[in-house]
């Protein structure tokens, strides 16, 4: 906030050594960490005699972590058999050339194009419905998976201190929500689609379900991360007026998080368009089904056309979401 440190008259400047982060005054930093876990009972000693040692966290972690990461990276390079030169050997070159030249000229015959109207529409419908479902499922679970809403930080400081069972309940629901989101994410949408095709039969609906579930996992996680990182100051102020959590979400959390939430959701929609092409491979409808057929028949001319159409669709969604984003954020102060 501007001007927070300007006083209008004389004030006692920083006196004794303070442990505030520079620039932020007192508690604007990260209450979730500052307030989350305090030792409940600390013998109160005169200020000079506070025991400073032993409370600092060890700073080895970054070093150890960096070394481990480097080792893993080198190891992976060898184990994954990364050999870029393979791409340029005679054999590889010939195959690529054959594949690419086989694409020309793309198949633009009416008999082929007339087959594509329905799959194209279907792909858009799958991606749209799938994303919608993902938001509907992911958002509420994401709220539960937001630690600053469920058990940590300023919004829970008092409640958690007041009753232990309630604190446990909140923490449990947080862990459960995170576990559910992880599960949704770990299973690839491809596998989800495969299962749903068994369950509800061929067609676009299993595609919608697959995208809905797996994207709910990703959206929920990212939502919770976005919500965890909004400025807690305004939330504290709303809470102090006696507002309930739901109202704090409405008036403090969402307004602050909205640009990021919308932006990420639109990006996921774009991904869903691409994903729904893959899902066709297991019979979940859309343009992917056609792509699969053409690939299987080594008809690269058709593949080219299909990929081009997919490209146009993704670009279109991208352009559209850019406009929506601008509409929401365009009013931002410069």
């Amino acid at each position: 906030m501007p001007g927070q440190e300007t006083s209008i008259a004389r004030r006692g400047p920083l006196g004794r050594p303070r442990r505030t982060r520079p620039g932020t005054s007192s508690r604007s930093g990260s209450p979730s960490r500052d307030l989350g876990q305090e030792a409940p009972r600390v013998p109160v000693t005169p200020l000079g005699e506070v025991n400073w040692t032993g409370t600092r966290r060890s700073s080895y972690f970054p070093v150890v972590f960096s070394v481990l990461f480097l080792l893993t990276f080198v190891g992976s390079y060898r184990l994954a058999q990364v050999e870029p030169l393979l791409l340029f050997e005679a054999e590889g070159r010939r195959n690529i050339l054959k594949f690419v030249s086989g694409m020309f000229p793309p198949d633009l015959s009416w008999s082929f194009l007339s087959l594509l109207g329905r799959p194209i529409l279907e792909t858009i419908q799958i991606s749209l419905m799938g994303t919608f479902m993902a938001v509907a499922i992911g958002f509420p679970i994401g709220l539960l998976a937001t630690s600053s809403l469920t058990f940590k930080g300023i919004l829970n400081e008092r409640e958690m201190a007041a009753s232990r069972p309630r604190a446990m309940l909140h923490r449990a629901s947080y862990l459960l929500a995170r576990a559910v989101l992880s599960l949704f994410r770990t299973i690839p949408e491809f596998v989800w689609a495969f299962m749903f095709v068994r369950a509800v039969g061929l067609g676009p609906f299993p595609g919608v379900l697959a995208i809905g579930i797996s994207y709910a996992g990703m959206l929920g996680k990212v939502y919770s991360e976005i919500l965890d990182h909004v400025n807690p100051g305004p939330l504290e102020a709303l809470q102090a007026t006696g507002a309930s959590k739901l109202r704090i979400i409405l008036y403090g959390l969402m307004p602050q998080a909205l640009p990021n939430v919308v932006s990420y959701t639109l990006y996921r929609w774009e991904c869903a368009v691409r994903a729904s092409a893959i899902l066709g491979f297991v019979g979940a409808g859309g343009i992917g089904q056609q792509l699969e057929i053409s690939m299987r028949m080594f008809n690269f001319k058709q593949v080219f056309t299909l990929v081009a159409i997919l490209f146009v669709m993704v670009a279109g969604v991208d352009a559209l979401s850019a406009r929506v984003r601008r509409a929401i954020m365009g009013r931002e102060r410069i």
Binding site: E159, A162, P234, E236, A237, A240, T241, G242
Partner: peptide, 18 residues
């Protein structure tokens, strides 16, 4: 708790507006 909080108004040093 909320009912008691409602009876206390706070003007914050950092304004804390959205």
């Amino acid at each position: 708790l909320r009912e008691v909080r409602r009876r206390i108004g706070t003007v914050y040093q950092q304004h804390n507006l959205v």
